[in-house]
Each structure stands twice: as structure tokens, then as C-alpha cells.
Design a protein around this nucleic acid. Structure first.
Lengths: 195, 195
DNA sequence: GTGATATGCGTACACATGTACACACTCGTG
DNA sequence: CACGAGTGTGTACATGTGTACGCATATCAC
């Protein structure tokens, strides 16, 4: 149905020059962040990446493939960074600090990641394929949190972070003065933070 | 720049038959829920609503106008329902029950509202015009919560609900067994619930 | 040098889109 | 009955889209 030839995937050229592939994926994420998934056309991405249009279908099996790979890279990058930051913590208290710092950076940092995240969420809310990506992402961040908190607290923390980020993103003013650390502490204080 | 004629808005016909307008908006939301904002074209919405293509530009000033009005109706509907449910509560405890019930319904109910919400969030994350909509929406739900909880708790609750909904939407399994009531209570118990 | 083979790209094509605009049609007024 | 203003629609057009495919170019064995 969707592969035009049965053996196309593995035979049609070795797909050299991974640098170029990477550049295309990066450009794709840039375009999505700037103008949305809907605007991420072969032509626009190609122009942004400085590659000819023909390269698009050469390096990727259609635009769906490109989008999927772009978001896969995005979630991988974010997850890695999250795990790195969490790994530098050595007890629940410093883990909390790390969480707060991450929220801060996601919130005050460039809106690029925020927009990309929402674009992915939207795709995931409708298509199961992308939901695999978001589910894995969430699982990884929960796992990182569970090194310092019990599972229920970890889940709650994760949800809270998500919600706070959302609120900040969708409300222009208002949230500036919000005390992130206090909110997080309030969720934690109550529970029994173990291990 | 974007109005073709200066007086177009108020003069070009009285735009009768509001029923038809409404039907188009409903159809638009249906299409968005089913296939996303990107797929909500004049033609598809027209077909879905059972109106000719020409009606699209007749009743709305282009597709942006249609989308904006569709989402405006969506947020208004949701907000009203939320306020109604919250109004039926008479003390913090029953208000909590109402919140839990709403989360349940949003989570287990049809995915339509969930998908629409994400589509709107995505738009809002990138365009200020839609952010006005989401900001107002959030303000209304916070105000409803503040009838029973102090502002900080209300904000936290709101964020938590948002986060939980998100998690449930983006993770196929896993969240089934999650204890919503417990999570909400945990946020509340700690704080001083006043008024 | 000479051919062969894999790599990469320019281009064309069928199709979908938003929107404008000329045309029917209705209906109330004289 | 005549007619004219206003309501609503069919259609055409310019533009942008994904993708296939024929052709150029580089690389390498001999």
C-alpha cells in the first residue's frame, strides 16, 4: 500500500552522505518550529537545507518518513538532555533542583522546543505512530525521575511539569511570577520521597 | 493588506441564515477533530456541511476567519460546561469531585475534544491571536476554581489537570490505572484550602 | 584510458488548494 | 405584472503540493 516497491527500502542505493541527511532533518525541524507541520513541504525544507528538491525523495521515502524521522530525532535529543541533567543529581533535593531548572529553561528558553513539542503532541493525539514516540519519551523521563522518587510521585511530577509548561506557553502574561519551585515542592513534600 | 476592500466587512450583504453559518462551523470542527487543521480545507468542510463551495467565502472572510470562529466556539462551549459543573459544587470537597469527574470525562470521553484541544494549543503556541483564546479559556477555568480554592492552589490544580490529560492522551497504556482522585487530593491536602 | 555502475539531481505531471467573480435566483415593492 | 436589489452559488484561475523518472556526474576496476 505505501511502499511502491517491495524491496525499495533496502536496495535503492545505500543512501550515502549521512551529513546531508542530518542537515535535511535539522532544516525540517526548523521549518516546523517556524511555520508548523502543515508548512513543512519538500520544497520549503529543501530550500532551508540548501539541497535540491530531488534530494528529498532520494534521502527519504516520502514526506511522512521525513516527519517521522525528524520528530524521532527531536524526542531523542530532548530525552538525552533530560537524563543527563537528572543524572548529575545525587539526592532527591538536588533532583528537584534539576527539575525546576529544566522547567525554567523550557519555559524561558527559545520557543522552538515548545512549538515542536506541541506539534508532536498534536500528531500523537491523532496518530498511533507518533504516540509511540511520545509514550517512549514519557517513559524515559519517568524512569529518570524514579531514580529519586517513588513511581507515583514521579508520575505526578512529570504531569505537573507538563501542565506548568503548557500554561506558560498558552498564557502570555500571568505566569511570569509563578513560583515553580514552590509548586514542585508542594507536590513532593506531601509524599514519602524514598530512595 | 488583508481586507480586499475597505468596507467589505460591514457592507457585503447581511450574511443571513445563521443556521447555515453554524452548520459550517460545526462541520469545520468535525473535520479538524477527524483529520487536523491542515486538512480543514474549504472543500472538505463544505462537503461535510452539505453546502456548496461558494458558501465558504460567502459566509466567512477566508479560511483563517473560519478557523478562528470555529475555535472560538469550541473554547466557549468547553468553558461553559466547566463552569456549570463547578457551579453545582457547594464546598471544596465536592468541587474536587467535580474536577475529578471532568478529568475522567475528558479522558475517557470521545477523543474529539482532546484532539481539538491539541490542535488549538499548537496554533496558540505559534500565533498570538489564538493565544488570546487559550489565555481567556484558562482564566475562566481558574476563576471557577478560585471559588473554592486559593489562587495558588487553583493554578496548581489547573496545571495538574492539564498535565494528567496530556499524559493520558499521549500514552496508550500505562495511565489506565492511574488514581486521578489521589493525585488531585495530594496537591490539595498539603495546601490550606480556604473560602 | 575506458567502460560500468552507483549516486544524486532537474524537471514534469497530476492533483488539491484559496479565492474572486460572473451569473442565477428569490422576493418584496411599486 | 414588472423590476430591481440583495442573497447565494458554480466555476475558473493562479499557485503550491508530493512524487516519479530520465539524465548527469563521480567513482572505481582493469
Amino acid at each position: 500500500m505505501q511502499g511502491t516497491e517491495a524491496n525499495a527500502g533496502s536496495r535503492r542505493g545505500r543512501r550515502n552522505d549521512p551529513d546531508r541527511r542530518d542537515r535535511i532533518i535539522d532544516a525540517c525541524l526548523d521549518v516546523i518550529a517556524e511555520s508548523g507541520v502543515a508548512a513543512a513541504s519538500h520544497r520549503k525544507v529543501a530550500e532551508h537545507a540548501g539541497v535540491p528538491l530531488g534530494s528529498m525523495t532520494y534521502y527519504f521515502d516520502g514526506i511522512d518518513d521525513l516527519l517521522r524521522q525528524a520528530f524521532a530525532r527531536f524526542t531523542a535529543t530532548i530525552s538525552e538532555r533530560f537524563e543527563q541533567r537528572m543524572a548529575s543529581a545525587h539526592d532527591p533535593a538536588s533532583a528537584l533542583d534539576a527539575v525546576v531548572a529544566i522547567v525554567r529553561d523550557d519555559v524561558f528558553g527559545s520557543s522552538r522546543e515548545l512549538v515542536l513539542t506541541h506539534e508532536l503532541y498534536t500528531l500523537a493525539a491523532r496518530e498511533r505512530g507518533y504516540r509511540r514516540l511520545t509514550a517512549e519519551w514519557m517513559a524515559r523521563s519517568r524512569a529518570a525521575l524514579e531514580r529519586y522518587f517513588d513511581p507515583e510521585t514521579a508520575r505526578l511530577l512529570d504531569a505537573l511539569v507538563e501542565g506548568l509548561t503548557l500554561h506558560r506557553a498558552l498564557d502570555d502574561e500571568q505566569s511570569d511570577s509563578f513560583d515553580i519551585a514552590g509548586a514542585v515542592a508542594r507536590v513532593i513534600d506531601h509524599g514519602d520521597q524514598n530512595r
